Computed example of a mutant assay.
Amino acid sequence: MKTFHLLYVTELTECIKVKSSDEDVDDSTEFVKFFPSFIWSVRDFTLERKIDGKDATEDEYLEFALKLKPGTSKKITSFNLPRECIQKFFPSRTCFTFPFPTAPEKMSTLESLSPADLSTEFLEVTKRFCKFVFDKSEVKRLKDGHTVTGRVLGSLTKMYVNTISSGAVPCLENAVIAMAQIENEAATQEGLEVYQRGMEKLKSSFPLELEQVSSEHQRLSSMATQAFMARSFKDTDGKHLKVLEVN
């Protein structure tokens, strides 16, 4: 585990904010509520997985690699900092050590090899790795439990990239608020379109009794609300739903 590969973790507090407070407050402790589990995958692993001469599991090996050195010198502080960040930001951690996928003489033609040419040990680790990811990966959620759909995740990602490209520091809280505004306005429009399409069809049946029109109005209003709820995102105060009901 080389320190220069880990230094990116130490820059998280400088490259992202959780809260929108103008105060210069370290909110890095909030990161753990947003970050996924940490999976350390080591390729072409040839070392002995031992600690103090005893066989160690992959997870034990990872925790040993993250162990801090005592002392306060600049060199030791530089060594400890990325490890402290990983421990702090990712309480859920696991490790997979992948051996060489095939014999050394075949490595240059790796992309054209068939599964039969791959090492059984490599395939075994790959199988465990895939099973772990499929079994343990959770649906992405916001801090308050709202599920993030693929569409919402794509929009949030675009916001973060645009913010970073502009030279600013992305704020998770502000991005979610902006995303909610966009999604709820779209949800309101979808609900209105459902109602308007239904009423346009109803016109072709005129003249109708007032009771029939009232009944169809109630049915379409219910359908419009359902369409809104299917698309809405964190409309916690019901503001956008009220807009739909008024229109």
Rank of each mutant, 00 (worst) to 15 (best):
120 T>A: 07
159 M>Y: 09
104 P>V: 04
138 E>L: 04
106 K>W: 02
106 K>L: 04
136 K>M: 12
147 T>V: 01
147 T>R: 05
154 G>L: 03
150 G>H: 10
108 S>A: 07
114 S>Y: 06
110 L>N: 04
150 G>A: 12
117 D>T: 02
144 D>W: 07
103 A>E: 00
131 K>M: 14
109 T>G: 09
133 V>R: 06
109 T>W: 03
132 F>W: 15
143 K>H: 13
137 S>N: 13
116 A>C: 05
132 F>D: 15
133 V>W: 04
117 D>F: 00
148 V>F: 02
151 R>K: 14
139 V>A: 14
144 D>N: 13
113 L>G: 01
131 K>Q: 15
148 V>M: 11
129 F>L: 14
149 T>W: 02
135 D>H: 05
130 C>L: 15
126 T>R: 03
155 S>H: 02
142 L>T: 14
159 M>I: 02
135 D>V: 02
130 C>D: 13
131 K>L: 13
111 E>F: 05
120 T>V: 11
155 S>R: 12
125 V>M: 00
105 E>H: 13
120 T>E: 11
140 K>M: 10
118 L>S: 00
146 H>S: 15
114 S>V: 07
141 R>V: 12
128 R>C: 02
116 A>D: 07
137 S>D: 10
121 E>T: 12
154 G>P: 08
144 D>S: 13
138 E>P: 00
141 R>K: 15
114 S>I: 08
149 T>V: 01
110 L>T: 07
140 K>S: 09
128 R>S: 10
151 R>W: 04
136 K>C: 09
110 L>Q: 03
158 K>V: 03
114 S>A: 13
152 V>Y: 05
111 E>R: 02
130 C>N: 13
149 T>A: 08
145 G>T: 05
142 L>C: 14
131 K>C: 12
135 D>I: 07
118 L>E: 04
123 L>M: 13
118 L>R: 00
160 Y>T: 12
120 T>N: 05
151 R>A: 14
111 E>V: 07
121 E>F: 10
